[in-house]
Design a protein around this nucleic acid. Structure first.
Length: 278
DNA sequence: AGCCAGGGTCTGC
DNA sequence: GCAGACCATGGC
């Protein structure tokens, strides 16, 4: 069976402060892979996308205009003025440097359920392995879109599984956490709609009722799944940032967009640490 | 071989 | 509230 192309390519002028590769490979999303030609392929919102950034052009291959406007525009946060946000970080020297080195990183607007489930899997784990587990989760329990591309399984699909049935994804002790999250979300015991409408503290409190969700996973879910830019997840890398760069406290200029600053600092510390080890 | 990874839970004080 | 053991897995 041959697939019918739904639409042509969409080309837009690359927005200011937009770096595709850094954004898709900075530890906030786990579903994108780089192709030999420099484009990226991935699945989000139940849609497969191949996308490539050239000097001045961003190409969404084989994408319908309706999908671009109703989904991808929001997913890549194209309407937000990142140049202004990054400029507001000039109050701090080290943060400014982090912004230069990671210039163009954006916070993706991922789906709440995928973000919650992905960051439950991220606990005490490393990024390459997180990607592998999520890939196997989608391949085993998602819906096939095209060759090698599967949707992220809905909570309803995972809620009826036993931990043993999840062994194929090799998530280890996280199996029962994934299932608990799927059960609470699909039953409405935890409501993603209510979380989206709640203030920050109430939203976090509701997320913390899920097993396997502590402070850090809740902050990640709110930042990446609900676009709460005031969230500030602290993992081991950000702990190093705080200890080594900001022992007296974080700079004032990040107030309101702490999550974006956090992403630049995360990238900065990880990149420099890797170079140090070579 | 042992340590680490976008942590959290559970128990005991 | 806080420390410490424990949790699966795989890369280095």
């Amino acid at each position: 069976m041959t697939s019918v192309k739904a639409g042509g390519d969409i080309k837009i002028h690359t927005p200011a402060c937009f770096a595709l590769g850094l954004t898709l490979d900075c530890g906030q999303a786990f579903r994108w892979t780089e192709n030999p030609d420099g484009s990226f392929s991935g699945v989000a919102g139940g849609r497969f996308l191949r996308i490539k950034q050239d000097v001045d052009t961003l190409t969404f291959f084989d994408t319908a205009e309706g999908d671009f406007n109703s989904f991808w525009r929001g997913y890549f946060d194209l309407e937000r003025d990142y140049s202004a946000i990054v400029a507001s970080y000039e109050c701090d020297k080290q943060l400014s440097r982090a912004c230069r080195e990671g210039y163009g990183i954006r916070i993706l607007r991922q789906e709440p359920w995928e973000a919650l489930c992905s960051f439950i899997i991220s606990a005490n784990n490393n990024i390459p392995r997180i990607k592998g587990i999520i890939s196997r989760l989608c391949e085993s329990f998602g819906t096939r879109l095209t060759e090698g591309a599967y949707t992220f399984p809905a909570p309803e699909r995972l809620a009826s599984l036993s931990p043993g049935e999840l062994d194929v994804i090799r998530a280890g002790f996280r199996n029962r956490y994934i299932i608990d999250a799927a059960q609470k979300v699909s039953s409405g015991g935890v409501s993603l709609e209510r979380i989206a409408a709640a203030d920050f503290e109430d939203a976090k409190k509701e997320l913390l009722t899920v097993k396997g969700v502590g402070e850090k996973v809740a902050q990640c879910t709110l930042l990446y799944g609900f676009n709460r830019l005031e969230a500030f997840p602290v993992d081991v890398w950000i702990r190093r940032v705080i200890n080594e760069l900001y022992p007296a406290g974080l700079p004032e200029c990040i107030r309101g967009t702490e999550g974006i600053a956090q992403q630049y600092l995360f990238n900065y510390m990880r990149t420099n640490y890797k170079e140090e080890k070579q």
